[in-house]
Write a protein that binds this DNA or RNA. Structure first.
Length: 482
RNA sequence: GGAGCGUUCGUCUAGUGGUUAGGACGCUGCCCUCUCACGGCGGUGGCAGGGGUUCGAGUCCCCUACGCUCUACCA
């Protein structure tokens, strides 16, 4: 039997990194096993439906490289892949359960339910439906339903015994049936709850393995009961640990970014995030950290997923991203860097010097951790420095510096403008003046970039042109004294 | 309140009865070097606590503590 797994998000907000990781594990497993990865949209909550969310979700999954074999946009043999378009199917199955006596109509009003819950809370009773309608006579139930009385459909959960299932990474998990109440299958609006839709669809779409967040563990016994009520064989369950914020607790915008889109905007590469997420809660079993997509797929196995929730350490993500930036060809970074530069207000400069972009990226990408850092630490490629780093001035711009800079400028007028010649020029000049190489280099970098750090000086000078360099040195002489 | 899940350096993890408890990020020392970053070499730092089982326990069992999740006509 070929493996079929699915990612079944609810389009109510952005794609959270936790959700992204669930999707990613599903994807890796499908690819590893030569199976199918489906995307199914669980839009059964009309009140929370959000059109933008669906669009962003699809965009973010694609950005991460998670392509699906069946689902929205690509179709497939089990269409439609939107639960809101499968209402008849759920209704039919709910009716089937009612006919079998495995489910029943509940006519309780939300007022009664609220009051019930309040009373339970007050008396410190365990909350849960009191099964008020469980034993309504079937004929009466049919009559009231036919008369149009508002109702939900609930599962008739066994009141004794226990339900056991196996979680692939945790082993057997056991629930006493009496702690489970009669959950709602079909809501008054005719939409199914997650529980019904999920079980019906997973069966209909022949899902073999359910890989989902571990917040679903407590619902799983009810799902198993549902499979049993239908007479179906449940899939293999594998519950994934959650991702925590750095200090513990929920991941949110405040505590590090939470959505995939945030990370894209912050200048991370999709594969870096992919790789990082794959290593959160899973490891190949050896010391590898930086892994290609193919290596990830080949090494992946569900058994190696950790049961423990993991904290999202953005510092480590930055490191990984920096590693990938080194491997990424200059050309494939151009568009994104251009986008950010425009965002920073450099559209005109970009247009005036189209060839500068490549130089900028190639000199800075290997020393940056994020794409936005490439931009923000290299703005001097586009404009004269308007400030000079104070510490650097104190350290490198000494009393004798201006005179040396003037001598240097004279040389720069005529030297061949490439990094090798420039370096030779600096070497010769320091020798003549009897000073250290660094005595000329640091002030030059400061004058040209305003900073104390950056690319190798001669590569930088070559990238900027002769006139620009000389002008900036003169400018520094004026502003810093000389 | 109840139920469930979890607990190896600060963080991500390796480890399935016998290891000097290994690696990575971070921090840090040195080297490389025109700076920064990269890279190389070293250092820092951990089995939540308590009971068992065993010749021997991070590894198996129990208890406690702590954390998280669920306890909706949300997923």
């Amino acid at each position: 039997m070929t493996v079929r797994v699915r990612f079944a998000p609810s389009p109510t907000g952005y794609l959270h990194v936790g959700g992204a990781r669930s999707a990613l594990f599903n994807w890796l497993f499908a690819r590893k096993m030569g199976g199918k990865f489906l995307l199914r949209i669980e839009d059964t909550d009309q009140s929370r439906y959000n059109e933008t969310a669906l669009h962003d979700l699809i965009r973010d999954l694609k950005w991460l490289g998670l392509n699906w074999d069946e689902g929205p946009e690509v179709g497939g043999p089990h269409e439609p892949y939107y639960q809101s378009q499968r209402l008849d199917l759920y209704k039919r199955h709910a009716d089937e359960l009612i006919a079998k006596g495995s489910a029943y109509r509940c006519f309780c009003t939300s007022e009664r339910l609220d009051a019930l819950r309040a009373r339970q809370e007050e008396n410190k009773m365990p909350p849960g439906y009191d099964r008020h309608c469980r034993d309504v006579d079937p004929e009466e139930s049919n009559r009231r339903a036919a008369a149009g009385e508002v109702h939900v459909v609930r599962l008739r959960t066994p009141m004794s015994g226990k339900t056991v299932f196996t979680d692939l990474i945790r082993g057997e998990i056991e629930y006493q049936n009496h702690v489970l109440d009669d959950l709602v299958l079909l809501k008054t609006d005719g939409f199914p709850t997650y529980h019904l839709a999920n079980v019906v669809d997973d069966h209909d779409m022949q899902i073999t393995h359910v890989l989902r967040g571990d917040e679903w563990i407590p619902s799983t016994p009810r799902h198993v009961l549902l499979y049993q009520a239908f007479g179906w064989t449940p899939p293999v369950f594998c519950h994934l640990p959650v991702i925590l914020a750095p200090g513990g607790g929920k991941l949110s915008k405040r505590k590090g970014a939470a959505s995939v889109g945030d990370f894209r905007d912050k200048g991370y590469l999709p594969h870096a995030l992919f790789n990082f997420l794959a290593l959160l809660g899973w490891s190949p079993g050896d010391d590898r950290e930086k892994m290609t997509l193919q290596e990830l797929v080949e090494s992946f196995s569900l058994e190696r997923i950790m049961p423990k929730s993991a904290a999202f350490d953005e510092i480590k993500l930055e490191w990984l991203n920096g590693q990938y930036l080194i491997d990424t060809p200059v050309d494939s970074l151009l568009d994104e860097v251009r986008r950010i530069l425009e965002l920073r207000g450099y559209a005109a400069e970009l247009a005036a010097q189209p060839s500068m972009l490549r130089k900028h990226v190639s000199l800075l990408k290997d020393r940056s951790k994020r794409i936005d850092e490439i931009v923000d630490t290299g703005l001097y490629f586009w404009r004269d420095p308007d400030t000079y780093d104070e510490k650097a001035v104190a350290k490198y711009w000494k009393a004798e510096t201006p005179e040396r800079m003037r001598v240097l400028c004279a040389q720069l007028q005529t030297v061949t403008w490439d990094h090798a010649s420039l370096e030779a020029c600096y070497r010769a000049l320091t020798e003549t003046l009897g000073i250290k190489f660094a005595d000329l280099i640091h002030p030059t970098r400061l004058a040209v970039s305003g900073l104390s750090y950056g690319p190798g000086l001669f590569e930088l000078l070559e990238a900027l042109d002769r006139k620009m360099v000389i002008d900036r040195i003169h400018r520094a002489l004026e502003r810093l004294g000389g």
